[in-house]
Design a binder for these strands. Structure first.
Lengths: 208, 208
DNA sequence: ATCAGTTTAAAACACTTGTTTCAAAAAGCA
DNA sequence: TGCTTTTTGAAACAAGTGTTTTAAACTGAT
């Protein structure tokens, strides 16, 4: 199962064969059908293992930033949330830990582009819940923001995070192309700074 | 070939069989191997048809925003550039035009996640050139920005654009999940406003 | 009309995919 | 031990993949 995790994250659903998984896991092809009932079932099993954990990590990060003692700022919230994205990345390099954890972020962007999960499982169990609590946090922290703009600025923040990671992944295959190679730490620092300024200046900006 | 374009954009490289393409094009399976020399060659042929055009469209948009008579602003540049992303999207709805054009943006995000193009073709012929001229434009428009920050803020802008389109694509499969369904027009208006504020406030922000 | 060259068509090829079969082996329990 | 149940293993299956083959059809100039 850890083998499946690793391979799915690395090559995606379609490009991972049950034979590869079986070989990596040191078991037989029939076993994975025996225990999981098919490749697809195994795929969602791998997801279930992470979805809840990562969702709670995100929600916890938000709550922690909001209920901490001391003054809470927009920057704190953004940084705390952004770090849930980069954390798995640094976890990989810190130790030769289970790579699945870090690669899972890549699998998330894969699943967004072409989904192989049961309908809406990803958005139902991850996107929507996190969006809700993050939206509330941003709303109370930035009362001057019109409520309709809250999901939009969140979309902007998440977009930066996802894209930064996707580009980082892309740069692994080609180097030196004008796009900056950012370390995770630098990544969250930049995105927090950019987004905080973006949100603060959002209200003052003219419509056009 | 237009059939290939359509199918590749809709289902990606792996999930499109030459038999499907042949059927859609009303020709034989052998023909596509006869003319293009394989599925992969056909894929890059489809890309070549768009890569140059879209790259020039982006570069033109930047130059147009920079050399226009009247006062040039950061907003103008951002809007002009952002519109090159959304333009193909609205072109689809405006008329029942070749869908390939609009779908191609989706194919771009696919190619970023798992590439099937010859090494670096996409970043060499698209990312790098556009990055260069866009970087220069931002640099002259925002002289207060430290040069090292220029690629980073561009990454943020592009990230918002790509992610907004990816999410839009995802919402086509599932509705109502907390994420706002943005029309292209609204999309560029928001991203321009957010990013302009983000860039302007970037210099003033504390480091942490 | 003849004969090159080019284009089409159906079938076959070699290979990979996910899944199933079915007998042998292992484990649990009386 | 004996017997049932659960697990494994290798092979087989059916379906799908990209590509190649081979012969027929077409094209266009002589």
């Amino acid at each position: 199962m850890e083998a499946a995790e690793e391979l799915f994250c690395r090559h995606g659903f379609k490009d991972t064969s049950v034979r590869e998984i079986a070989a990596a896991a040191g078991c037989n092809v029939a076993a994975i059908n025996y225990y999981f009932g098919g490749k697809e079932k195994l795929y969602v099993a791998v997801w279930r293992r992470w979805l809840a954990e990562m969702r709670e990590a995100r929600i916890d990060a938000i709550h922690r930033a909001m209920s901490g003692d001391g003054p809470r700022s927009l920057e704190m919230l953004l940084e705390s949330y952004a770090r849930t994205f980069t954390e798995p990345l640094v976890a990989e390099e810190r130790l030769h830990q289970r790579q699945g954890c870090s690669r899972f972020v890549e699998l998330m962007v894969r699943e967004m582009v072409d989904p192989h999960l049961p309908t809406d499982m990803f958005v139902r169990e991850m996107v929507s819940p996190v969006m809700a609590v993050l939206g509330e946090a941003v709303g109370t922290l930035c009362p001057w923001l019109e409520p309709s703009a809250v999901p939009q600025v969140i979309l902007s923040v998440v977009g930066q995070l996802v894209h930064a990671i996707a580009v980082r992944q892309m740069l692994g295959r080609c180097d030196d192309c004008g796009v900056p190679r950012m370390e995770p730490e630098q990544m969250v620092r930049h995105i927090v700074r950019f987004s905080a300024a973006g949100i603060r200046g959002y209200a003052n900006g003219e419509n056009k």
